[in-house]
Design a protein around this nucleic acid. Structure first.
Lengths: 201, 201
DNA sequence: AAACACGATTAGACCAGTCGTCTAGTGACG
DNA sequence: CGTCACTAGACGACTGGTCTAATCGTGTTT
């Protein structure tokens, strides 16, 4: 564990660059050349940091979910405001991030899920763990919301969290296909309904 | 073999074979050689029937939605039974088709949607038209169900149809990622809830 | 301090595979 | 026969991921 000047930097730099490009074009459609060219990293270096393109994809998804979950935690644990607000702000932000960026899909679960699930068992496993972690947190948030009295859901919180996440995944897919935000707005309406907060908010 | 010119046969044979393979591996990850090899069609023929791989993908999706919509119409117009039954049978069948086949994803909207939307404008357009047509039919079915008294939904039928379809898309994506049917079962519970038929059925 | 050792990093060769083109060739039917 | 829809598959220009050999950087030894 010597303080390496480049190691971590270069590795992460490749991952960050790749996330933008692969988030836009998909996994199989993008070649190493394009990524490494954009990152200004010689091709030869790649296999020093990653064992294969497959292993690289695994690392890419791990890196993605790591920052995603950290951000999610930050958003859902923001103190002071009732949980409804935090949660609805999260969905609102989903609309925001998925809506404007057509080229670079911010949500890799949406962009890569279907493509990669049958392509690489390792990548599928990371996606599985990542999405399960997201749903788990959403479920905990719902329970917190019921505890602080700002939320009320029918049935177990985890079940609702699962359905909510699935709905937003599907809506994001439809948003990509239709190149419009209306599917996301439909998801927002459905979310309000599931959480029984039609009157206010 | 058959007196009828091969035109239609061969063309459709290529499309059918491709649907299986591409439904399993995705669009970019599959080369023409693999498809044509499996279909026992020489490469030279391919470019007689299709202008390019891109145009071929377009035709593939068109063919897919054509048969999908025909099947959907058949299912939803089955006479005799109330619309709830027909509709729930449709979702049940969704679980059935998406659940068992891991390799060849039957629903190309799920498998190719995210990948292709940013790859080919033509293919995206077909997906857009196809999914909109499905939602439209589901909305009409919901209205029929309200007319025959077997269904009751909150708000406009089209809105509910949109949300239902999105939920099932998302659930199918999660089913692929988790390699299990539980997301689809969650979608089924959510569907029952949205249609207010928790007690019976 | 100079030479060395050795792992970290890079450069580029490598071949299999990509899409798409193109010329020959087949065979059915007017 | 002649025509034309269709088949056959070699070919080219290119890109894919992978790997070996050379280079660089840094700490150690003398």
């Amino acid at each position: 564990m010597i303080a390496k000047p480049h190691s971590i930097d270069v590795r992460q730099h490749i991952l960050d660059t790749a996330q933008r490009i692969i988030g836009g074009k998909g996994f199989a459609a993008v070649g190493l050349n394009e990524i490494l060219g954009a990152a200004n990293v010689p091709k030869g270096s790649f296999y020093h940091y990653f064992e294969s393109k497959d292993a690289f994809g695994e690392a890419l998804l791990e890196s993605y979910f790591e920052t995603y979950l950290a951000d999610l935690d930050r958003r859902l644990s923001a103190p002071g405001r009732p949980m409804v607000d935090r949660m609805m702000a999260y969905w609102q932000n989903w609309i925001h991030t998925q809506g404007d960026c057509d080229a670079e899909c911010k949500c890799l679960a949406v962009k890569l899920g279907a493509e990669v699930a049958d392509l690489s068992e390792a990548m599928r496993a990371v996606l599985d763990r990542g999405t399960k972690a997201i749903i788990k947190r959403l479920g905990q948030a719902l329970e917190e919301g019921m505890a602080d009295g700002s939320l009320k859901v029918a049935g177990p919180a985890f079940s609702t969290a699962e359905t909510l996440y699935q709905t937003w995944l599907g809506a994001s897919l439809m948003a990509k296909i239709s190149r419009s935000a209306t599917p996301l707005e439909a998801a927002m309406r459905a979310t309000r309904m599931m959480l029984h907060l039609d009157p206010p908010h």
